[in-house]
Computed example of a mutant assay.
Amino acid sequence: MRVLLVEDDAALGLGVARALEREGWQVDLLQEGRAALAPGLMGQFDLAVLDLGLPGVDGMTVLREWRSQGLKLPVLLLTARDELADRVSGLNAGADDYLVKPFDLSELIARLRALKRRAEGRTSDCLVLGALSLDLAHKELSHKGEIVRLSPREYALTEMLMQRPGRVVSKDAIVARLSSWESDFSENSVEVYVCRLRKRFVELGVAIRTVRGFGYAIDQAQPGETVGADG
């Protein structure tokens, strides 16, 4: 999961970013509201954590602009204003949740997980495809109860695909997600990781299919199916 964190307090922002990264999430930290309005920025993220008290362009203005542009990603507001009117204003402007500072990091993480589940129409932190089960809370993939070991990049790619079973995930989206680990991550790198997972998953009853010119889709393999590098 990739999270946009907009927080002008450097120490707080760094602390939150590190806590989220320990969960295996990728975090982009911005300190100004104006930067959060950069064209093309928002399509890269699954969630946003937005401080209301930003310098220059404040968080409420950023939120309203995002929603006016039709951006639907879940947004959790951080605010030092423990006033009912401020909380109501934020929710009415399009926020999905809020936390009042100071807050506990474990609560922030729990709320973000809940927002992600709600956005995906899930009621638990597990994604299931055939005999494969992906535990999002513990970052573990299992097959019939046996753990399947994955590298961090393999896990992130598996999560992207299993969140959209049967639907195409574009190469551009995969590059955007995994490039936070490598500045030179490319479409060729995507093909390498897809090839690795494909060879492992086909033995587990799951196929990763290439949709030429678009990207990849994961689904249960048909009986006797073998999906090769170009399948």
Rank of each mutant, 00 (worst) to 15 (best):
L14P: 01
V194L: 13
G90E: 03
Y216H: 01
G15D: 00
D58P: 00
A137M: 11
G121W: 14
M1S: 06
E32R: 14
R81I: 15
V169K: 05
K139S: 09
G130C: 07
E107G: 00
K144Q: 08
T210I: 12
G130E: 04
R111A: 13
A229T: 03
E146R: 12
D9Q: 03
V88H: 10
S189P: 02
R67A: 13
F201Q: 09
S142G: 13
T226H: 00
V88W: 06
V190P: 10
M160P: 01
L136S: 03
R149N: 05
S68D: 09
S68K: 12
I218L: 09
L50T: 02
T123R: 06
E225P: 01
E21S: 05
E154G: 06
L73I: 01
N92L: 07
G43L: 04
G231W: 10
T79P: 04
R122T: 08
P39K: 12
E83G: 14
I174Q: 07
N188P: 05
L108W: 05
L150A: 04
R118H: 12
T210W: 04
L52T: 08
S124Y: 08
D97V: 14
G215Q: 06
V168H: 02
R64S: 03
L77T: 00
E65G: 05
Y193L: 11
R118Q: 15
K144V: 05
A207I: 03
L150W: 03
V192Y: 07
G130F: 04
I208C: 01
D219K: 11
V211I: 15
Y193N: 09
K171H: 15
L5V: 01
D135V: 11
L84F: 02
